[in-house]
């Protein structure tokens, strides 16, 4: 930070010859900031508009379009969205949907981390026939995204009688080639001597995993957790197919549901839909904000 700040600070003692250099650098920095500010506006603009509009009356939004200013109905709108029962049964509230999304995101992320760590552990540290083939088969599943195999997946879940259940919603999704790949690469970068030292210290496969590998993977786990939580949170198609019970609706589904159902005789509740959109965006954004330092650490730092 100081290194960045220094060139900006005026240096009275500096010889005159240094001045033009400073000025050139300063001009470059102004340019950099213009580019950055433009980027920030591009990213944040739609969200600001969404949030501001959600505080207006639906009539205003309907007649005048989206709003940039504060409309003063923040509390009413968000209270309705969070606490008032809606949907077909009239029982589903925003809070419940948020909670469902949290459950899905957590189950999704934690399940993926556990499964892929174990898979990577087996692939990297155990010699078994066709180990590398097994890895490439796992890796090849990246070529078959969920959307491609959604019908057979639905069939399997349906036959197992797991429709409308959390296990049916989460379990079929937790195998992850991406996370397995990340963990495999990470484990391979851990020096063999650590394993050997642990063997001499009397640590068996389980101990080594729990005492050494898992703690060393902490930052890696955090990074994958963020990615997978957000992916899980944003799932739309899968929960829409697996669950028909409204009490299991996630907030991402809820946005559409509310718009559709709450279209009354007159004007749709635009403000509530926008408020739900904000609520749906906030938790993943928070997760990223809170974990971002660990996230970056996990991706770039090697603590070995």
């Amino acid at each position: 930070m100081t290194a960045l700040a220094d060139p900006l600070a005026p240096a009275p003692a500096a010889p005159a010859a240094a001045r033009p250099v400073n000025r050139a650098r300063r001009r470059a920095q102004i340019l950099h900031h213009i580019v950055l500010i433009f980027g920030v506006l591009l990213m944040c603009g739609p969200m600001v508009v969404t949030f501001m509009s959600s505080t207006w009356d639906p009539v205003v939004i309907h007649s005048e379009g989206l709003q940039l200013g504060y409309g003063g109905k923040f509390l009413e709108t968000y209270e309705t969205v969070l606490l008032k029962g809606g949907g077909f049964t009239g029982e589903i509230t925003g809070t419940l949907m948020l909670w469902n999304s949290v459950l899905l995101g957590l189950g999704f992320a934690i399940g993926k981390i556990v499964i892929s760590m174990l898979a990577a552990y087996a692939i990297v540290y155990f010699r078994f026939p066709f180990a590398s083939l097994a890895f490439w088969v796992i890796f090849a599943t990246l070529l078959l995204p969920l959307e491609v195999r959604i019908l057979p997946s639905y069939e399997v879940v349906q036959r197992l009688g797991m429709l409308n259940s959390w296990s049916g919603l989460i379990l079929p999704l937790i195998a992850s080639a991406t996370a397995t790949f990340f963990f495999r690469q990470f484990f391979r970068s851990i020096p063999d001597e650590l394993l050997e030292a642990a063997r001499i210290d009397g640590a068996g496969p389980f101990r080594f995993f729990v005492d050494i590998l898992a703690p060393l993977s902490k930052t890696m786990m955090a990074a994958i957790f963020i990615i997978m939580f957000v992916v899980g949170w944003n799932q739309y198609l899968w929960p829409a197919l697996m669950t028909t019970d409204e009490s299991m609706f996630t907030i991402v589904r809820g946005i559409r549901q509310i718009l559709q159902v709450w279209i009354g005789a007159n004007i749709p509740d635009y403000n509530q839909a926008l408020a739900l959109a904000i609520l749906a965006m906030a938790p993943p954004a928070l997760v990223v904000l809170v974990f971002q330092r660990m996230f970056i650490k996990g991706l770039v730092e090697t603590e070995k």
Binding site: E193, L194, A198, R207, D211
Partner: peptide, 26 residues
């Protein structure tokens, strides 16, 4: 036996004390 490795192979996430104690703990 006990072994000293070329790169020491100390457990990076453990303190020196835990490093020394790990084998005995196991």
């Amino acid at each position: 036996i006990a072994m000293v490795f070329q790169n020491y192979a100390l457990y990076p996430h453990m303190t020196v004390r835990q490093n020394l104690a790990y084998g005995l703990k196991n």
